[in-house]
Amino acid sequence: MGGESDEEFAGFVRDASPRLLAAAWLLTADRHSAEELVQDALERVYLRWPRLRSGQPLAYARKVMTNLHTDRWRRRRREVLVEAVPERPASERPSPPGGAGVDVVRALQQLPPRERQVVVWRYYLDQSEQRTAEELGVSPGTVKSSASRGLARMRELLSEGDESRAHSR
């Protein structure tokens, strides 16, 4: 690639990256991890840009991003298994910076990774069940049940957060 094609891709990056970065932030709660995730995904889009440019590069980018995210948490879990290092409970993880959205991001991190992806795809990226299923590589039934469980769990977690804040006042 080169010249016009690169310029076109650069335009795509400028348009698509803010929302992808935000979605990655919701998935990871870590700025650097989010940037790395999106950069990795966009690099793969670039390598297939001649084929993707007239199709759905954003959908492809999201699909790659979720695959990479899945790979990373599985690798991390595997390392944990091998090294016998217990995963730190969510309460001991560094808190993400921010304001009112902090609780939401922290609560998201307590969902199982697949459920977290479904919640972000359905309720932040506003993707349909079918599209979410395609991009996450699961069945529509799994999306429906994960979304339902995720919503219920978020309701519960954010309710707990409210109560603990109320108690600490």
Binding site: V13, E35, G98, G99, V119
Partner: peptide, 21 residues
Amino acid sequence: RLLATAAAEAPPMHLEPDAVI
């Protein structure tokens, strides 16, 4: 609504197209 708020409050993040390429 809460997810949109959380995304809006995310720390500043940026990707440079040339760096991606």
